[in-house]
Design a protein around this nucleic acid. Structure first.
Lengths: 175, 175
DNA sequence: AGGGTAAGGTTCTTTTTTGGAACCCGTCAA
DNA sequence: TTGACGGGTTCCAAAAAAGAACCTTACCCT
């Protein structure tokens, strides 16, 4: 099975990964969040080949994550800026950063300080329940298949559904 | 520059991506969170080649994200289970899922329902400030370089520091 | 005890994707 | 008007992935 086929799975994780093809897209987004806008910014900061940068930026524009506009200052240049859809990837980038900070820096001590503007205190971003605000971990949630998902898998055997989905069919609970 | 070199950058995002080499590792983790444990589980569910699965599982074990233990039932078999370090990747997987749910399913309607066990209501996981609990977006935070980071970059020119880091050197604020 | 099969890999060969460098073309600035 | 810069594209060699075959233990059944 080829990587590209992830786009066809009925799984939001696989589809997101299909859009973000490889690590370079994540790093392009990181730098976009930090203010990079120009082809040459990304090239210099990331050190990836022009060929690949061109392909990745093109795909991100294609998917509506970046917007490509002519630069006001220089007719030769373009600005790549985050769209709303791109800005919505912020939690992905922050989550990667938080894990890396906690598990890959080994004795290098704290790396940065983050302040929420509304609050002022140094903080760590964390995943919470949108309803009660409590932090969410792998043992704190239950997931049930929606009607749409069940409909999509209707008539398939357990094995076929698992292949279609990429993981075992989730339990059908009330809702 | 090669992808592997991301591990040497002093950036928690790049280092995390270096650990999670490509999309397959993310999908392996997704399925591990959903209960997959055996080589054959991952192979059947993901449909990737045995060669690559072997390499990715090996790397995840190597990095302490999965733990490989002999199966109790079958002397031939092994269980790959998430360590604490692996469980800590939960927000990464959830963030990918939430974005994909909101931006890649196009009219396919709701996909699943998530309930926090402590709360009961259907919810969407979101990123919040650990101190005040308010939701965090790209415009709600300011980041400043830690002493460790500044020390690491001391004596380098702006350009050299940018190359070392992979992005522009962050502003030095109080703290 | 012996044959078939399953678990978990490894080893091949062929196809795809990269990395790296060179080239190109329309600006821009001196 | 000459040289450099921005943003690509093209080419080739090198690296990595897909797919299939093979291998080794260890079950399971008779």
């Amino acid at each position: 099975m080829k990587k590209a086929d992830h786009a066809e799975k009925f799984c939001p994780i696989a589809r997101t990964l299909a859009v973000l093809e490889d690590s370079w897209s994540f790093l392009i987004l990181r730098n976009a969040f930090l203010g990079a806008r120009r082809f040459s910014d990304f090239e210099r900061q990331l050190g990836l080949t022009r060929h690949l940068l061109s392909a990745r930026l093109g795909a991100l524009v294609e998917h509506g994550i970046l917007r490509k506009t002519a630069s006001a200052q220089d007719q030769r240049a373009f600005d790549y800026t985050l769209t709303e859809k791109g800005l919505a990837l912020y939690p992905v980038i922050v989550s990667l950063s938080e894990w890396g900070r906690a598990h890959t820096l080994e004795g290098d001590g704290p790396f940065d300080y983050i302040h929420a503007t509304g609050c002022g205190a140094p903080m760590r971003p964390q995943l919470c329940c949108s309803e009660c605000g409590e932090p969410i971990g792998p043992h704190d949630v239950s997931v049930s298949a929606s009607f749409t998902l069940r409909e999509r898998l209707a008539g398939l055997t357990e094995e076929a559904a698992e292949r279609e989905l990429g993981y075992p069919v989730p339990a059908v609970e009330s809702v």
